[in-house]
Design a protein around this nucleic acid. Structure first.
Lengths: 111, 111
DNA sequence: GACAGTACTATCCAATCGGGTAGTAACAGA
DNA sequence: TCTGTTACTACCCGATTGGATAGTACTGTC
């Protein structure tokens, strides 16, 4: 059981996780990539609302944390493919719980 | 299964959840409250790094989303007690998954 | 030669965030 | 009378974020 203690060590690991996932975009990008590799423009279209600049920055941060892979193909117009790593895929459960909670939250609060 | 589709509806609910939980502090505050009610100063001490101003703002946002309750006692120096709501407590699973992932992440990346 | 296409990067600028300091109400104790 | 206590709010100001726009490298096509 987790609830029932406010254990500082647990808080630390939550803090670590939040640090790697900070911002509104990272989990959405990972979610998009969870169904397969994408190119930059595809992500830009799929994650609606994000600008190229921010997407580029977020992808860099995700790559640094080894949550995604970046593959560059040496083609005429450049092609870059992003895919989720095993470590990134291990967030599936978090995403899943967040999804369920989001549903409940919408039903309760947003209407 | 969630992974395997990049379903926009799923993305929406994740977006809803992220909106209610945005920032580095909200989940940490909820985690602290998950082990029982706290007063303002206690939270301020427990959630290390947060300033009074930001804590006050975050608590207000959490209250608006019905994730916490605020009880004011009419005492000499004011006493305010914050506690988690049922809806807030339903984030337990998210917190738990985040905790596990944070542990794995620290082991893998941070070292 | 002009243009299109991709994945960015750079620059400018406005908005927001967040830290620090100070102040408030109301009463208790020195 | 002066100070301390709690839970804030107000104000100032510098740092960060994020949007809009434009530019770059390279090559194939019209």
């Amino acid at each position: 059981m987790l609830t029932g203690n406010g254990c500082p060590k647990t808080a630390l690991s939550i803090r670590d996780a939040l640090e790697a996932l900070e911002g509104r975009w990272k989990l959405l990008i990972l979610f998009a990539l969870s169904s397969g590799p994408r190119r930059f423009k595809q992500l830009s279209a799929e994650v609606s609302g994000i600008t190229d600049k921010v997407l580029s920055k977020e992808l860099k941060a995700l790559e640094m944390n080894q949550l995604i892979n970046r593959r560059v193909f040496d083609t005429f117009p450049p092609t870059v493919e992003y895919s989720i790593t095993e470590h990134g895929a291990s967030l599936e459960k978090v995403l899943e719980e967040l999804h369920y909670w989001g549903l409940a939250h919408r039903a309760k609060i947003i209407g």
